[in-house]
Design a protein around this nucleic acid. Sequence first.
DNA 1: TGTTTTCATAGACAGTCTGTCTATATTGCA
DNA 2: TGCAATATAGACAGACTGTCTATGAAAACA
Lengths: 202, 202
Amino acid sequence: MPKLWDETVESHRRAVREAIEDAAWSLAEEHGLRAVTMAKVATAAGIARATIYKYFADVESILAAWHERQIDAHLEHLTAMAEAAGDRESVLRSVLGAYAEIVARRGPHGPELAASLHRAGEHQGSEAQVDELLRRLLVPAVDSHQVRNDMDVDVLVRYCRHALGAASELSVDGVDGLLELTLAGLRPRPVGREPSDETTTS
Amino acid sequence: MPKLWDETVESHRRAVREAIEDAAWSLAEEHGLRAVTMAKVATAAGIARATIYKYFADVESILAAWHERQIDAHLEHLTAMAEAAGDRESVLRSVLGAYAEIVARRGPHGPELAASLHRAGEHQGSEAQVDELLRRLLVPAVDSHQVRNDMDVDVLVRYCRHALGAASELSVDGVDGLLELTLAGLRPRPVGREPSDETTTS
DNA sequence: TGTTTTCATAGACAGTCTGTCTATATTGCA
DNA sequence: TGCAATATAGACAGACTGTCTATGAAAACA
């Protein structure tokens, strides 16, 4: 509910934009994605329906913008963590843990929204950026043999993101175990042990 | 395009149902979920718009039914595999591998549809059944110490399903590596090794 | 065979949402 | 003060929905 014309034009427009995004998200959260209409968003945001079209083309754009805002904030958090001091092992652990926590916190509604936005071509915005962050973390870890090197890094990255994505269905205390499992998958295979099948990397 | 009245009434209705479902899916695949309307589905299926309402209440129901049909077929396949002869290790491997392959084959459109259907309350239909299958496989494996037992089985199950879900973004040859990673996460921690931090499970 | 039941159909209907376009009013800015 | 940008209510056509007819066609039954 932004006041009419608060201070400067630019800040006003930004305030209205955010009010629209928040209203849309809150409607989606409460009544489901399908129930979000331009008219309801406008009402909830406290503006006229006609006005909303000067900010967004359709409902999807609104939710996509909201989503991007969230992602940006999360990415900032994760990036800061990735650049923090500490040995590679613990940095990797803390970043992956933080990601899992984010996923867990946004709950079951998160994937739903993300998937709906997927198709809108906004795919580049979120997962790809997480992937890039993970890759920057994993490459040196692979080189220094802290993470198995018998695998394409692409696969490692997708594995991490998806495995930790399970946090969306887990309670907060399950997340620790999930992180442990995921990290265990990354560890280099112990050499000279495990006399079963595929010892050679094929 | 089912012929008018083929043989018996029941088989006719089944044929029409499937024609509707297939038409809806093909529209969704081609033009996106949002573009699927009852009118277009009816036209594509070769029936009148009014008729379609005697089979399905709305677009979501149609896609949900299509999805369920696919899932059922896949689950049958996986279940057969799970009950096949062989040691636990290789059965687990083949079932997980088969699941990953299914996910990879349905491509990037799969998660999109599944997520949209999620919210419709159809959640019970697919993931839960996969989870149950995985659980039946994992519990004895945990008991016989072929899979780590320091973790809630629930977490193991979610981990498996999500990690293998990464196959949706991978090419077919990446799937092998993904399976390897996932299985590595499941293996019991080697006792008495790894003198780093968390040696005790705590 | 004729009768009855089941189904498909076209068309109409009100209701909702969309996207656009007015004319008018308000506010910031120079 | 005047100009440019914005917000607004209202109107509008178009699309989709869900329901309801009346009509006809095909199948099932006796």
